[in-house]
Simulated scan of single mutants.
Amino acid sequence: MRLLYNSLIKKIAFCLLISFFIACSSSKPVVRTTKEPVNKTRPEIVVRTDKKPVEKPTQPKAEPIVTVPTSTNSQTETLEATSKVKVTTEIVLAYIDKYKDVAQKNMRNHGVPASIALAQAILESGAGTGDLSRQANNHFGIKCHKDWNGPSVKHDDDEAQECFRKYDNVYDSYQDYANFLRGRRWYDPLFKLEQDDYKGWAKGLKKAGYATDPAYPTKLIGLIERYQLQKYDAEVLGKDYVPTTPTNSVTVADKQTEKPQPTTDQHQVVKGDTLYSISKRYNISIEELRKKNNITENAISIGQLLQIK
């Protein structure tokens, strides 16, 4: 009986042991023999060959600042000869300061009053701002004429594309201007005047045919007296200069001489008129226009009255 009991105990212990091993084996993790690929994907790097470099924004270029000198006496002049331009008092004064020495040199060497040379240059060149003066250094509006063999430019004046003298520099223009007056006999009476007689010179230039504008002498005298150009004559002549107060201070812009109204037999020149256009309008030849109006240089001015019949 005791033996049977011991045998039963052994069987129970054996069964418990077997159950323990089975339970332990079922709790072990499953080990796979084939590994699944780890899908660690790298981000795709795209290289663009057409990518343009990013440009840094640029600031717009600043416009150049032009400083214009100011003055309590700043006025505007309209200078009208080979070019019609508007200039300030400062521009005219700067022009005088720049070229007064060459004008005085011409006066000593050739007898042309410095005041007259400066006044004509200011008027004809627009104080150096006119087209002809900038393109050809021609400050006196001198055309080619038959005796000119030097360089030239074309410029619209009394007629389209007329021939004007061209100079290497402004000083050559002043020199040629003096030679021009000295070399033509109809200007001889001018050199018999006193060198400081600027009024006589202004009127004599008009009479000799330098310009056909009836107001030409008045314009020159007005410029001389307004800017006191006669003091440069006094310096050359060694005289004391006493500033004068213009009695008829007629400037180019401020006042024009009163002109009679045209009659049916006359034509008043307006901007854009040339001898050619006027001759076509009234069916008259250019030569006949010249004879009727005593025109020698083909020069006409705005406001001028021309006899057409």
Rank of each mutant, 00 (worst) to 15 (best):
P64M: 09
T82D: 07
A215I: 08
E288M: 13
T58P: 01
P260E: 14
P60N: 13
L93Q: 10
G130M: 05
N293P: 00
E55Q: 13
T49A: 14
N73S: 14
G222V: 04
C24M: 13
L275R: 00
K271Q: 15
D101E: 11
K40P: 03
V242H: 03
R290F: 08
Q59F: 10
Y187F: 13
I12N: 03
E159K: 11
G200E: 03
V250S: 07
S27M: 13
L8N: 04
L223D: 03
Y282K: 04
Y276N: 14
K280D: 10
K143R: 10
L205E: 03
Y171W: 07
A23Q: 08
R281N: 10
K231H: 04
A121F: 01
V85W: 01
K51A: 15
S133T: 10
I18P: 01
L289P: 02
G126N: 11
E80W: 09
K51S: 13
L3N: 09
P57D: 13
Q120M: 11
S279G: 11
K271C: 10
V252T: 15
E235H: 04
N39H: 14
Q75L: 12
A62R: 07
Y216Q: 01
E63W: 05
V153D: 08
L4Y: 09
V112L: 06
K203W: 04
V30W: 07
D147R: 03
A114W: 00
E194C: 00
P69F: 12
V250C: 03
Q104G: 07
Q230V: 09
I300C: 09
R134E: 12
K271G: 08
T33N: 10
L17H: 00
Q307A: 09
Q261C: 02
S83I: 10
D50C: 00
T82K: 11
T263P: 11
I224N: 05
G111M: 07
K28G: 11
R165P: 02
Y282F: 12
V250M: 12
E80F: 13
P57Y: 05
A178K: 02
Y167L: 12
R108L: 11
L3T: 14
K206H: 14
N39C: 08
V236S: 09
P214F: 06
I116M: 02
L205K: 01
A202R: 05
K40D: 15
L181A: 07
I308A: 01
Q59I: 15
I12T: 02
S26C: 12
K56F: 08
R281C: 05
S133G: 04
T70N: 13
N169D: 15
S125D: 06
I45P: 02
V85N: 01
K61R: 14
Q195R: 08
F180T: 07
I142H: 00
G111S: 02
T257L: 14
D196T: 05
Y167H: 06
S83T: 11
P69R: 09
H155V: 03
A94Q: 13
V270K: 12
P60W: 05
F14R: 10
M107D: 03
Y232P: 00
N248C: 02
G183V: 05
P243T: 08
K10P: 00
M107C: 07
K239Q: 06
D156S: 11
D101T: 06
Y5L: 15
R32H: 15
E225K: 08
T245M: 12
K207T: 12
K11V: 15
H110N: 10
K309P: 06
T70Y: 09
T245V: 15
P64R: 08
D97P: 00
N179P: 04
N298Y: 10
K11L: 15
Q175R: 09
Y99L: 06
